[in-house]
């Protein structure tokens, strides 16, 4: 269901203490260089590098608000984007009351029959809709002549809220808010540390049949309990697949490095 609500009244502007007048506010999504061009070995603590062939995300539940006021923009449309493509890509643009849009929320949620393409190929949309995926990644990791590929699909449902967006819409002017996807988070070696390392060696080691592809089943079978890193906090997670799945809940940011709360 597509539901777009734009509230733009002088009364609302006055109530929020903003300037009179309206401007345009755009929302966009970007996978940054790490997803578009790859994560270089310099980012990994163990010398691996990763490139993504596909990085699909199902994004919806977008709200854009000024402080604690009711959202001026609320859009329930779920869209699938392939953020390996050169972005940023527009999601929507609306005329809104001028003001500081510092409270954004959105969901990375399983695609449904109602999900529409953002920038993705029709076949990718079908993949996401038919199987209810929220995130799907394909990629290749390399290190010193070793190559591992992966194709991982996730149905995690994460709401990013209270995102600290920074857009300021002046009267008769334009501003934008960016949902930024951080692909390197899939390779963090801790679920909760504020200073995790980006690593791949353990994931590579999970390729039990050594056929070059690290599958979800192989990750599921890999017991991480004896590892000194791969901290899981209080979650009780004990295998690598559940670990990586949990990391998909950290992919979303706002305006580059801006943070959100998640649920």
């Amino acid at each position: 269901m597509r539901k777009i609500v734009v509230v733009s009244t002088l009364a609302a502007v006055a109530a929020c203490g903003g300037d009179a007048g309206t401007g345009t506010l755009a929302a966009e999504i970007w996978g940054e260089d790490f997803i578009e061009h790859g994560i270089p070995a310099s980012e990994f603590a163990d010398g691996w590098s990763v490139t993504f062939g596909k990085f699909l995300v199902s994004v919806g539940g977008l709200t854009l608000a000024r402080g604690g006021s009711p959202p001026d923009v609320s859009d329930d449309t779920q869209r699938v984007f392939d953020v390996t493509r050169a972005g940023p890509f527009p999601i929507l643009t609306r005329v809104v009351p001028s003001g500081r849009y510092d409270t954004t929320s959105y969901r990375l949620a399983p695609a449904t029959a109602a999900t529409v393409p953002g920038n993705c190929a029709e076949a990718d949309l079908d993949l996401m809709r038919d199987r209810g995926y929220s995130v799907y990644v394909e990629g290749t990791a390399q290190k010193a002549g070793r190559t591992k590929t992966f194709r991982w699909a996730f149905a995690t449902d994460t709401t990013y809220h209270a995102c600290q967006s920074t857009a300021v819409v002046d009267s008769n002017a334009a501003a934008s808010i960016q949902i930024t996807i951080h692909g390197d988070h899939l390779f963090y070696d801790d679920l909760f540390s504020s200073t995790p390392a980006v690593t791949f060696e353990v994931v590579a080691g999970a390729d039990a049949d050594d056929d070059g592809e690290v599958t979800p089943a192989e990750l599921q079978a890999f017991d991480i309990r004896t590892l000194p890193n791969y901290g899981t906090g209080s979650t009780g997670i004990d295998n690598l697949w559940d670990f990586v799945s949990h990391l998909t809940r950290t992919l979303g940011h706002i305006d580059g490095e801006g943070h959100c709360e998640t649920r």
């Binding site: 994460t158 990013y160 209270a162 600290q164 988070h185 679920l191 909760f192 540390s193 504020s194 906090g233 209080s234 979650t235 949990h246 990391l247 809940r249 950290t250 992919l251 979303g252 940011h253 943070h259 959100c260 709360e261 998640t262």
Partner: peptide, 9 residues
């Protein structure tokens, strides 16, 4: 403390 996604539960 606005937490980094995933670093707060």
């Amino acid at each position: 403390a606005f937490a980094h996604p995933g670093h707060y539960a």
